[in-house]
Write a protein that binds this DNA or RNA. Structure first.
Lengths: 285, 285
DNA sequence: GCCCCAAACAACGA
DNA sequence: CTCGTTGTTTGGGG
């Protein structure tokens, strides 16, 4: 069973959150480091404190689904919020519960990372990733990767952080609806033209979402804002074109789709139930 | 289309075949060994010849889905026929095509192992297996193994040669129909009573099949005889109780079943159901 | 519903 | 429709 409390920020949310952290904190000096949960860290609390205290935060940027805090002494702190992680900027960290790490800046400005579920991960100097961020994707790379895993389902492909970074359950549904491709289409069966459509959808869905969030929630620091999503949206009953929105549990994720989407799979789908909600199956010549 | 016939002998067929080989060849001396396909052997043709020539075949018996030829010098030759392997006893091996190995006995008696597809495997002194033969199964072992893989489907369980040896696609369907359990029931969800029924069905289906084959095809040396199968039988439209026989491709095997079989899978019913012994009967689409 | 892991499942080739 | 290998999906736990 999932609940609305268990969605997580994806690329667009993290992008806005990171920009807001950058706007509010960059240029400030770290006056104290308090580790509340040593186990979620890849190093000892002492080392972390030693490395960060008295340095200046030079920039906060996003990398995939993580926020990265870059410090003036070249240290990098990567933060993956996972399911319930949050950033808060408060005058005093003691007012936040479920704290993992507090970075105290000058003038009563504490950055607090907290997580009710303690699933978040904080990493000093994470390995640079060779996996492209979804916004840096090229059509060539996308095409090549799709060919490399011909029998993987396209939704699993999009959310696989080893292929591209930043897309999760919600935006994969948005991108696939925008591309008119079913979530269970097979990577190897999507024709070239549809791959181009998909490529463009990845870029436009994500960048437009960033703009929308910046407009509607300019100060976003935690959680995610999704009221505008066209299909992965419990408040919507119909797609923008008026077709009913269908849902299905798929790879233990709640997936939203409609029968406007093309199914690319030469073979008969092996379904366990004949669900009346099964997406329209269209054979590709 | 006889060329598309790709069934393989299972335990009952192999049992009769092995007994017939034993009856016709045991006690005879090997006068020549001819390896036609060295690659399907685990040793060199020279070694095989050296080990077997001039020895006496003391017994032929079945082990799982293999026939084993035991020789007077303690050598053992294991033969797995796979999909298209065949035994022939002929006056002269040269009349057989697609030969893999010929063992020539005295008095114009050649045992020829052939295989159109070259998938068969011949092994000198195979490792003794710790996996029980299906006919040696105990109820305790069956119960224990089922508990060990609670989410495996019962049909996959029965045909898994690492759990018990001898059952394949055809007889698993027979056994499951006899037990009134659907092929996709989960091992961990089958109640004790049904496990006992399954255990008994394994024994009775296999032993009665052996008897039936011995009666109807007393000289069987190759292929398999299945006219009498109750459910895994393309010639039958209805089960013995008059219900339609359904088929489904499952784990890339053609599976025969009927809606008389109980489906054991807890996910399909509410948690607070207060009749824990009563499974829902669900028809597989 | 994140990521990781192990186990089960499915496809392909020999 | 075998077995072995490989790749993909699934379910549980942190």
């Amino acid at each position: 069973m999932w609940s609305s409390e268990l969605t997580m920020p994806e690329l667009p949310d993290l992008e806005v959150i990171s920009k807001n952290l950058n706007k509010r904190l960059s240029g400030q000096k770290v006056t104290n480091v308090i580790v509340h949960q040593p186990k979620l860290l890849n190093i000892s609390p002492e080392t972390l404190t030693e490395k960060l205290i008295n340095t200046t935060l030079s920039e906060v940027k996003r990398e995939g689904k993580t926020a990265q805090l870059l410090f003036s002494n070249q240290q990098v702190l990567g933060v993956h919020l996972k399911l319930k992680g949050e950033f808060d900027i408060v005058p005093d960290h003691s007012q936040v519960s479920h704290k993992l790490l507090s970075l105290c800046f000058e003038e009563q400005t504490d950055l607090v990372i907290s997580d009710l579920k303690k699933l978040a991960k904080i990493t000093l100097n994470p390995e640079p990733s060779s996996v492209p961020d979804a916004l840096d994707l090229t059509l060539e790379y996308l095409t090549e990767q799709l060919k490399k895993m011909p029998r993987k389902k396209i939704k699993a492909f999009l959310v696989d952080q080893g292929i591209m970074r930043g897309i999760g359950n919600a935006y994969s549904d948005e991108i696939l609806w925008e591309s008119r491709i079913t979530p269970e289409s097979l990577c190897g069966q999507i024709p070239e033209k549809a791959v181009t459509t998909l490529f463009n959808a990845i870029k436009t869905v994500l960048t437009q979402a960033i703009e929308q969030i910046q407009t509607d929630r300019p100060d976003l620091l935690k959680g995610e804002y999704r009221d505008f999503l066209k299909i992965h949206n419990p408040n919507q009953k119909k797609t923008p074109t008026g077709r009913p929105i269908l849902t299905k549990k798929f790879a233990s994720k709640k997936t939203y789709y409609s029968n406007e989407q093309m199914h690319y799979d030469q073979q008969q789908r092996p379904q366990h139930n004949n669900s009346p909600q099964a997406p329209l199956k269209i054979e590709i010549p």
